[in-house]
Design a protein around this nucleic acid. Structure first.
Length: 241
DNA sequence: CGAATTTGACCTGCGC
DNA sequence: GCGCAGGTCAAATTCG
């Protein structure tokens, strides 16, 4: 984990020899020791941040792989092999989902549900208000009309209807794009904010903030150079006086 | 009692 | 212009 090291050699020698008093030398050594300690703490914090980051990245990769697998399976079932929609095998695959976007801002979302379940609810992380229902000509199942009710200004609408061929298949047509986070995301952000603001967690929040700062400084190529300049100027100050 | 849902009426666009 | 079908409105109703 060499990356985590700031790689600063703090055993800096003065550029020229002076007639320093023993008192000044003691101050200098003390200052350097303090900086070594700070450097060590910083390295430890960076190690923790990197470990957290790596485990988070692994978790995200794992979720992405699972999602890709699910989508490719349902696509095979819904789009490539429409004729065997009603096979026993496909009927077994309840609650499987797939997305199909068109370039005019309309997204179709397919969800397989139990045919005996007559509810038209598709949980997609957003909050919807039903504003109408209509039986259409080509489908005996009623079509439900929803507006996004999470943000008053959100223009997104969706239509939900059972497939005419397969009453176990719910089809949701999304019109427009949300101009806000999903209710689910908002809830998670709020929950973590509240958790971090409990008295016990305030210190932890500060620690996380410091870790993030340290991480960003580590990535800054100028940081080490500037730190070295600051250290040497400090040393020179001691030498001058 | 307020929020969500239902449902009939009304509006709009399109084909004839 | 007329009729039809899809989409929206809003009062009534239901639900928690």
């Amino acid at each position: 984990m060499d990356e985590t090291s700031l790689g600063i050699d703090l055993n800096v020698s003065p550029f020229y020899k002076t007639d320093d008093t023993p008192q000044m030398n003691d101050d200098l050594v003390g200052g350097l020791n303090q900086m070594r300690l700070k450097n060590k703490k910083l390295r430890e914090m960076i190690t923790v941040v990197l470990d957290n980051s790596n485990s988070l990245q692994n978790h995200v990769n794992k979720l992405m792989q699972e999602h890709d697998l699910l989508v490719s399976n349902t696509n095979k079932r819904k789009f490539g092999e429409c004729d065997d929609r009603n096979t026993t095998e496909s009927r077994k695959s309840l609650h499987q989902e797939s997305l199909k976007s068109t370039n005019d801002g309309v997204t179709k979302f397919y969800r397989r549900t139990d045919p005996s379940d007559k509810s038209m609810i598709i949980k997609d992380g957003y909050q919807w208000r039903k504003y109408g229902q209509k039986v259409t000509r080509d489908n005996p199942c009623p079509r439900a009309y929803y507006k996004c009710s999470f943000a008053p200004s959100c223009p997104v609408k969706k239509k939900v209807q059972r497939s005419v061929d397969d009453d176990g298949l719910l089809v949701a047509i999304y019109d427009g794009e949300h101009n806000h986070e999903s209710a689910e995301s908002e809830h998670k952000i709020q929950a973590s904010y509240e958790r971090l603001n409990t008295p016990k967690e305030v210190g932890r929040f500060d620690a996380i903030f410091v870790e993030q700062m340290a991480n960003s400084l580590r990535r800054n190529p100028d940081f080490i150079e500037e730190l070295a300049v600051a250290i040497s100027s400090k040393i020179l100050e001691h030498d001058v006086f």
